[in-house]
Simulated assay, not measured.
Amino acid sequence: MSLGIFLAVLGAAFLHALWNALIKLGTSKVGGMVILSIVEVPIGLAVVAFANPIDPAAVPWVLAAGCTHFAYKFFLTYAYDRGDLSRVYPIARGAAPMIVALFGAAFLADAVTGKEYVAIAVLAAGILLMARGVFASGEDRRLLPFAIGSACATATYTLIDGMGARVSGAPAAYVAWVFVADGTIFTLGMLALRGWDVIPRNLHAWRMGAFASAASYGAYAVSIWAMTFAPIAVVAALRETSILFAVLIGWLVFGERMTGEKALASLIIVTGVMLTRL
């Protein structure tokens, strides 16, 4: 991997942590996520306009991914309502690959190597240590089920996207259509649940939400671009440094409490995630 690609992937990791931070920063986490979702639709349509068409057989996968993204955003939003970025993000991001690995071993007849068992054990240790900090520091314990729910949704749409992109015959267009479905379903779903008041009316919230949406797509686009020049496993592993970026943003920008235990748990989770990718 060249230095340029290495720095680009680090930038993508930072963008992923950044859009999560922008959602956490807003006074209304749900409102910020709704704005992000609304802006996803024109971004996806713009990409579709210049991409190859997808195979119609991929349409059910697009809709399934959109519905699963709704769950992902819903759980993540409510987790951020109850916990710090530096606590929620590592749990939500770190538990997902562990769930995928365990599901694949149990139901997809995937061969699990000794290294993958070690990776799962490391991830479990890091997540348990991070979760223990919630109880030890008197934080809102309700963040845990929402963070784990977000991780389960992430694991689910990871499996869906893996199949859907293959069926589509045009991965770039498939992802763009997922953006359209995701943005539409989440926006309509939250309007049904919370009414029109869920949409923020101030310009500042729209600027932040739009920037978060652009950062979300940029993080994905840069990663996909890097995978055309460097080994996919290496890019995927390096991208997980987003966990460390999120922890640092929470600590240095938001002033969240940083303990030795939280820092150690974050490093263990990053190590475990990288082991699952390489």
Rank of each mutant, 00 (worst) to 15 (best):
Gly218Glu: 08
Phe75Thr: 04
Leu63Ile: 13
Glu261Gln: 15
Ile43Asp: 03
Phe179Asp: 05
Val59Asp: 00
Leu45Arg: 00
Tyr220Glu: 12
Pro145Val: 11
Trp225Thr: 09
Gly126Asn: 04
Ala92His: 02
Ile23Phe: 02
Lys73Asn: 15
Ala210Pro: 07
Gly209Val: 11
Ala17Ile: 05
Ala165Phe: 04
Asp161Pro: 05
Thr241Val: 14
Gly260Cys: 06
Leu85Gln: 04
Glu139Ser: 12
Met163Thr: 13
Val118Ser: 10
Ala265Lys: 04
Tyr80Gln: 05
Val48Cys: 12
Phe6Cys: 09
Thr158Ile: 04
Met130Leu: 14
Ser216Tyr: 13
Ile224Gly: 01
Ile38Phe: 10
Met33His: 04
His69Gly: 11
Gly11Cys: 10
Ile224Lys: 11
Met190His: 06
Val112Gln: 01
Gly218Asn: 10
Ala230Glu: 10
Val100Gln: 00
Ala119Asp: 00
Asp197Arg: 15
Ala221Asn: 12
Gly183Ala: 08
Ile23Trp: 01
Gly255Ser: 09
Arg82Ile: 10
Ser242His: 08
Ile243Leu: 11
Gly164Thr: 05
Arg141Gln: 13
Phe107Ile: 01
Pro145Trp: 08
Tyr217Cys: 09
Gly189Gln: 09
Thr68Ala: 13
Glu256Lys: 04
Ala51His: 07
Gly209Gln: 09
Ala46Ser: 14
Thr156Phe: 01
Val167Ile: 14
Gly83Leu: 04
Leu85Thr: 06
Ala221Thr: 06
Glu116Tyr: 01
Thr259Gln: 08
Ala101His: 00
Ala236Leu: 13
Glu240Asp: 11
Leu159Val: 07
Met1Ser: 14
Phe70Leu: 13
Ser168Ala: 14
Lys115Phe: 13
Gly162Gln: 06
Ile269Asn: 03
Ile268Lys: 05
Arg82Cys: 07
Tyr72Phe: 15
Leu36Gly: 03
Pro171Lys: 03
Gly169Phe: 01
Arg132Asp: 15
Ala263Ser: 12
Phe14Leu: 12
Leu244Ser: 07
Ala12Gln: 03
Gly255Leu: 08
Ala233Leu: 08
Trp61Pro: 00
Trp196Arg: 15
Asp84Tyr: 08
Ala246Asp: 03
Pro53Tyr: 05
Phe186Ala: 03
Val270Asn: 02
Asp161Phe: 05
Phe179Gln: 12
Ile35Phe: 07
Phe14Met: 10
Lys73Val: 14
Val178Glu: 03
Ile43Ser: 04
Ser37Gln: 02
His69Lys: 09
Ile38Arg: 05
Ala121Lys: 12
Tyr220Phe: 14
Pro42Asn: 11
Val175Ile: 13
Phe14Thr: 02
Ala124Leu: 12
Gly164Tyr: 02
Ala215Trp: 06
Ala181Gly: 09
Ala92Gly: 03
Asp55Met: 04
Tyr157His: 06
Ile224Trp: 06
Trp61Thr: 00
Leu129Ile: 13
Val47Trp: 04
Gly94Ile: 03
Cys152Gly: 10
Leu238Ala: 11
Val9Arg: 01
Leu144Ala: 03
Tyr78Ala: 01
Lys115Asp: 15
Ala230Ile: 08
Val34Thr: 08
Met163Cys: 10
